[in-house]
Amino acid sequence: MTTTERAQGGESQPSRSGDAPAQAPRKPVPALSAKSLRRAVRREKIAPYLFLTPWLIGFFVITLGPMLYSFYLSFTDFSLLGAAEWVGLDNYIRMFTADPKYMDSVRVTLVYVFVSVPLQLAFALLLALVLNRGLRGLPIYRSIYYLPSLIGASVAIAVLWRQMFGKNGLVNQVLSWFGIVGESWIGNPDTALGTLIVLNVWTFGSPMVIFLAALRQVPEYLYEAAAVDGVSKWKAFWHITLPMLTPVVLFNLILQLIGAFQAFTPAYVVSGGTGGPVNSTLFYTLYLYQRGFTNFEMGYASAMAWVLFFFIAAVTAINFWLSKYWVHYDD
């Protein structure tokens, strides 16, 4: 778009003239001395930072500062209570050599992420395609399907999930109509993680809305040309729609991957904070929380947080690198 260029152009013109006497003022400003112009210019340079001040304070004081501090803590035995002592790389070594539960949590998280995110995106795309067919009352459907995304990560929904997938929950009641006696879905180590995956898939609304917007951007003439050549709808989807959507798929993929790696609330609420049954819902972040706040090992928990940070960064980087093989940019 050209809005950014326009904005830059408008901004940079007077400031670039710098200290030089007012050679080419943009507009005829009456009685503007060189001095007051300089002051005005300086003020314009400062203004954006002043606008940003609240955000900058927030960023440095409550994001970057604590992050750097936690990086330091990850090399200590900080317990939350009392002073921290330097232990070097001990926390990182322990994680990979002497903590079997840590590996459990990694495994659970990887299954959760790599099963739920593709399913969620496929589901989102499918519904976007359906909704894109010029349905009447589209805004209503769009809102309804978007709703789970807004509330999906909340405690209330996790509590609801716990009720639905319990032994006497809604799911088993429905199954009983067909004569099936279901086990407790959240109480069984084989199915507990599945209920959390379903929960994440159910929050398909935000990728769906983005897909929907992207579908509107696919030029109509491509389909017209395909229709003239007698291409089936199915083929048109694979050879026109999907390639045109790939940049948005990449965007959704990266966003949802990052979100899924950091998921905490559903597992915390559904398992009552334990990650059970038998650690089957022990998300990485949940285990991190247990170490930090239940076992008073905040140094170790900080180290875990940084491993997660670098892991997510690596996955994101790999995705960008892989994207050149499958993402199609039209321009």
Binding site: G166, K167, E183, S184, I186, G187, N188, G272, T274, G276, P277
Partner: peptide, 11 residues
């Protein structure tokens, strides 16, 4: 009860 039910009331 069976273990899946028990684990719902663990705490």
């Amino acid at each position: 009860p069976t273990p899946d039910v028990s684990s719902e009331y663990l705490g």
